[in-house]
Simulated assay, not measured.
Amino acid sequence: MAPGVGGAITGAAAGKFFSWLLESERARPPRVFVSFDFDNDQQLKHLLIGQTKRQNLPFSVVDGSLKEAAPEPRWKEAALKEIRRCDVVVVLVGRYTYKAPGVLAEIAMARSEGKPVVQLIGSRSLGYTRVKGAGKVLAWTQDNLTKLFGND
């Protein structure tokens, strides 16, 4: 075999393997990290998770939230680990989300990891304030969820 030809053949095989790997990654449903005001909006998180279980939505929600209050270093480490595993971070926007320290920390982690962040309006009736740095604000509708997380 001529010098360099083996490398070209190996390179082509590796290219096929990596393109297959990338295609299989795209085929899995996107993983979504949900950020919310732990003290005021746990019901919004439960509603979103319930909606994903009841309907055939093209994404999976990672419930990385701690079930109880925890010391700051512990929840930050746990949140960062889950954010790294996810494809997108969704901020559920309630009345006080814009000033919730945990949400602001999770947004900063997502930004530092290069993860896209989007806001879903959890309740218009209570009023809400956009969360600074948390990306586009969308109404919480099945169409918007499908557009955001669809695997098209």
Rank of each mutant, 00 (worst) to 15 (best):
M1S: 06
V5T: 08
G6V: 05
G6Q: 08
G7E: 11
A8K: 10
G11H: 01
A12T: 02
A13V: 06
S19F: 07
P29D: 09
R31I: 04
V32E: 01
F33P: 00
F36A: 04
Q42H: 14
Q42V: 13
L47Y: 15
G50I: 07
G50T: 06
Q51A: 14
T52E: 12
T52M: 14
N56W: 10
N56S: 14
P58N: 14
S60M: 13
S60T: 15
G64Y: 09
G64E: 00
K67V: 10
K67M: 07
A69V: 13
A69K: 11
A70S: 06
P71K: 10
E72H: 08
P73E: 08
R74T: 09
A78S: 12
L80I: 02
L80Q: 00
E82I: 09
R84S: 11
D87S: 07
V90I: 09
V93P: 01
G94F: 08
G94Q: 10
T97D: 03
Y98M: 10
Y98N: 12
K99G: 06
A100R: 06
A100I: 08
G102A: 07
V103W: 02
L104I: 13
A105C: 08
A105H: 12
E113V: 04
E113K: 03
G114H: 02
K115V: 01
V118S: 05
L120E: 08
L120A: 04
G122L: 10
R124P: 15
L126V: 15
G127N: 11
V131C: 09
V131H: 01
V131M: 03
K132S: 08
K132R: 11
G133T: 02
G135T: 03
L138W: 04
L138Q: 00
L138E: 03
A139V: 10
D143F: 15
D143W: 09
N144I: 04
K147F: 14
L148S: 04
D152M: 15
